[in-house]
Design a protein around this nucleic acid. Structure first.
Lengths: 221, 221
DNA sequence: GTCTATACGTTGATAGAC
DNA sequence: GTCTATCAACGTATAGAC
């Protein structure tokens, strides 16, 4: 698969989108998210997206140069949100408070944007070639910087000496599981869908186990 | 999507598969796993599978009635392995020893059969309609029975009073993450692939955090 | 900006010669 | 059992009238 920046992205920045343009682009992106989240890039058809967006399929090609362009647009939308919460963690924070807050933020993301999480998961499982740009040298440096925050906490004796990298994967894996595997969770527990209450119970449990597992005392909040 | 049992499965049970048949079926299943793991059911083409199996595509339809039949065959292969380790947990076990062993077993599965994990993940993300049969009433009862093992440990005062259901999801999410998101893990850490050593370090960390988080002392092994 | 009509490759699946 | 030839349906993408 080759990577190509959609031709319209520059345009969209240059001049403010018209009322119609904005409305249609939103409808298309929304419909595209639904399909990409269920069937991945290859398994999704422009036909279906067009039908669900309520537009003739030729219009998709007017707003987005091609299928890959649309996919990249959807993916970019997601990535912008994805890493921002992770940046909130800081060396000066109280580890228990910060970790607890981060877990809740990730779980809230899994609850409100499960589609986004699933598109990302599918893309990674499919090899993640569309994310080559995202996973650049900078990204790796950024990730190491984030891991260093945990290491600083450890060096200061504020938490157990755990490999920060694997702690991060534990945080990601356990929270994203509630978005990506929601179907299995519902089937297995007999729920129709995961309610806000379900997700809060899940968050409480994750915080309790992970914090204690790192030698931290959960905040009294 | 409708569910259909492949017509050949009964035949395969009835008479022992010929040498050729077995060899070809294995080649097809192997090639199918690779493709389904990368692109899911909809995104996979019989054409590609045939090419990678080194057979004309008409032969696929000889051995497996249709695409869905092949997919179900692959999926069944996986599910047989999937739950067996989980059944090893027993009320009479020492919780720390049993949990530690289970985490290692799941991680070993993620290392040796990452494709299987990914196919399962894709199927769940896609809605899991092909697993309706698998997620039956029986499965729910089985799951509750597994959760009851943890509850028994808790009632006996052997571990902290944690919601067993969410503990199970934590175990699943954190271990499967190393198979499903291996691409991301490699990009972010700069590794070309996850070695056996990497996976053992990861297991050690998971065991350390989760066991302590449940109020257990890791076994001295 | 919008949408009908259409080009043209690929899909899953089968027929029928070997 | 194997494989070539072929089908209808669907895939992405575009041309060009409005």
């Amino acid at each position: 698969m080759t990577f190509e920046v959609p031709a319209h992205s520059a345009q969209a920045v240059a001049k403010p989108a018209s009322r119609i343009r904005q409305k249609n682009e939103e409808a298309i992106i929304k419909a595209a998210e639904d399909e990409f989240a269920r069937h991945g890039f290859k398994g999704t058809s422009m036909n279906t997206i067009a039908r669900n967006a309520g537009l003739p399929k030729a219009n998709l090609h007017y707003y987005f140069t091609n299928k890959l362009g649309l996919y990249i647009a959807v993916l970019s939308n997601i990535l912008d949100l994805w890493d921002s919460t992770f940046n909130a963690l800081s060396v000066d924070d109280d580890p228990a408070q910060a970790l607890s807050h981060y877990i809740r933020a990730k779980m809230e993301f899994s609850r409100r944007q499960p589609q986004a999480s699933r598109i990302f998961a599918m893309e990674i499982i499919s090899g993640g070639e569309c994310l080559n740009e995202h996973f650049s040298q900078d990204y790796r440096a950024w990730f190491q910087g984030r891991a260093a925050v945990f290491q600083a906490w450890i060096d200061a004796g504020k938490m157990d000496p755990i490999d920060p990298v694997h702690l991060i994967f534990l945080l990601w894996g356990s929270t994203q599981h509630y978005a990506d595997f929601a179907t299995q969770i519902c089937r297995v527990t007999g729920r129709a869908r995961l309610t806000k209450q379900d997700m809060e119970t899940a968050s409480d449990n994750l915080i309790r186990i992970i914090l204690k597992g790192c030698g931290l005392t959960p905040p009294a909040v």
